[in-house]
Nucleic acid binder design. Structure first.
Lengths: 115, 115
DNA sequence: CTTGACCCTGACAGCGCTGTCAGACCTTAC
DNA sequence: GTAAGGTCTGACAGCGCTGTCAGGGTCAAG
């Protein structure tokens, strides 16, 4: 599929899809005329990037993860320090969740103190 | 207290404390020689800013919240649309928590699939 | 009075991310 | 063949946040 369609299907802007490629997270085929040609695997990848990204992960971090994550099952063999990255990222995520929960408590408290 | 001490006590860099002031989130007293002089209320505010900020809130958003949040108990009277902001922010936070949980599941799954 | 630690302001720069614009090419449908 | 809409590249700019540097003032201890 072409970039516009992928954009519509994933909700990621055309601009960002090209950016992902520039950062090395995607490498779509090209048609003879130079148009990007994405497959379903690319679409899957974009969805993953989106989720990981909205969790606060940097594209750089996601990039380290992604190549090992083809096929829903990570392949760790080519990725030596990946486990470390993963554990570290889970730690970061837990921290963020904690902060968010705290904030939520604060805000929800404010709201209910008014109703 | 002076800015260096506040920085040490809160873990927020001197640079950022001055930035907060520039953005209108803090307004410390000044000594006759121009040094910033922070009180305990400022320290409290900085801690709140820190928590709210690490929850992904913009300083601009925090700024709208902060004036109504003196004394641990929000004063809604001067803040008409605050409830709307609060509800909206809680929604955003819930979204972020959801995304983080998803990411966490993905990553933790990867890790356990290897042990 | 000097020295070292701290503070001041202002500016520049970078980060990661995102939008937008220009100028050109491609494709599809009429 | 023409027009409309999609795509290409490359560049510029902005966002919010953060560090750093320069050039200068202040303060406390020796």
């Amino acid at each position: 599929m072409k970039i516009g369609e992928l954009s519509r299907r994933t909700g990621v802007s055309v601009r960002m899809l090209r950016y992902y490629e520039g950062e090395g997270l995607l490498a779509p085929q090209r048609t003879s005329s130079g148009y990007r040609d994405y497959g379903t695997a690319d679409e899957e990848a974009v969805r993953r990037i989106k989720v990981l990204g909205s969790a606060g992960m940097t594209l750089e971090t996601i990039k380290q993860l992604l190549p090992c994550v083809r096929n829903n099952r990570p392949d760790f063999r080519p990725c030596d320090n990946l486990r470390r990255i993963l554990a570290q990222q889970v730690g970061l995520i837990d921290q963020r969740i904690e902060a968010l929960s705290q904030s939520r408590t604060i805000l929800a408290g404010f709201i209910s103190s008014v109703n």
